[in-house]
C-alpha cells in the first residue's frame, strides 16, 4: 500500500560552490504522476533530484510532501552509485535492504526472479557494472515509498533488464506513487511519463 502524497516544489534555488545550478524551479506532482527530467550534462539534474529527496538543502524555495495521513511519507532515491557493500555478497546486501525497508521476503524473491539475479552468492566486488546495477535496482524496489526518484536508472542495463525496470516503474505509478526520473533516454519511459521537464545549463 502506497501512502498518497502531493509533491510541491516552489521557487527552488540551489547553489553549489557559489554557482547557481537550479533557479526558480517549481513543479506540482500528484499521485500517479511520472515526471521525466532531461537536460545536458551539468544542467543540474542530479542536484535537483537530491534536493527534492532532502539530501541537499536548497538555498531558497521549498520542497513539500503533503499527505492527509499522520505517518511520514518515505522517499526512495536511486542515485548513480549502486549502494551495495562491495565486501558482501548480493544476497547479504538484499537481506540488509529487506530488513531496512521492513519488506517481506516474498517480494524480494519475486524481484530476484524478475531481474534474473542468478549470482546471489557472489561478492559484489566480483560483479560487472550491469550485474551490480540489476542487484542495486532489486534492493531499491524493496522500499515502500510514496516518492520514487531515479537518476539515470537504465545506465549499464541490457535490453531485457531495461524492460523489467520500466515495467516495475509503471507498477509503482499505477499503485499511486509519484515517480521522478532523470535520463538522457526519455523515449524509454515515454509510455509511463505524463510530464517532461527540460533543464537548461
Amino acid at each position: 500500500m502506497i501512502l498518497p502524497i502531493n509533491l510541491n516544489v516552489s521557487d527552488l534555488l540551489v547553489k553549489r560552490g557559489g554557482i547557481t545550478l537550479i533557479q526558480s524551479f517549481s513543479v506540482n506532482l500528484v499521485p500517479h504522476d511520472c515526471c521525466i527530467l532531461t537536460g545536458p550534462n551539468g544542467s543540474g539534474k542530479t542536484t535537483l533530484l537530491r534536493t527534492i529527496a532532502g539530501l541537499l538543502k536548497p538555498s531558497w524555495g521549498k520542497v513539500d510532501l503533503n499527505t492527509d495521513s499522520e505517518s511520514k511519507p518515505m522517499i526512495a532515491y536511486q542515485g548513480h552509485q549502486d549502494a551495495l557493500t562491495e565486501q558482501m555478497t548480493v544476497i547479504e546486501n538484499l537481506i540488509f535492504y529487506q530488513k531496512l525497508y521492513k519488506s517481506d521476503s516474498e517480494q524480494m524473491h519475486s524481484l530476484i526472479q524478475k531481474f534474473s539475479i542468478d549470482y546471489l552468492n557472489q561478492p559484489v566486488s566480483h560483479l560487472s557494472a550491469g550485474q551490480k546495477k540489476r542487484a542495486s535496482l532489486c534492493c531499491h524496489f524493496l522500499a515502500k515509498a510514496s516518492l520514487w526518484i531515479f537518476d539515470e536508472p537504465a545506465t549499464n542495463l541490457d535490453q531485457s533488464s531495461i524492460s523489467v525496470l520500466t515495467q516495475e516503474i509503471k507498477k509503482l505509478k499505477d499503485r499511486g506513487a509519484i515517480v521522478l526520473i532523470a535520463t538522457h533516454s526519455p523515449q524509454l519511459y515515454s509510455f509511463i511519463s505524463n510530464l517532461n521537464v527540460s533543464l537548461e545549463p
Binding site: A53, G54, L55, K72, M74, I75, A76, Y77, G79, H80, Q81, D82, A83, L84, T85, E86, Y97, L100, Y101, C139, H140, A143
Partner: peptide, 15 residues
C-alpha cells in the same frame, strides 16, 4: 565506505 557506495543516502531516507 557508505559515502563512496551511496548506501548512506538510502539509510538516511529509510527513516
Amino acid at each position: 565506505r557508505d559515502f563512496l557506495d551511496g548506501s548512506i543516502d538510502k539509510i538516511l531516507l529509510s527513516g
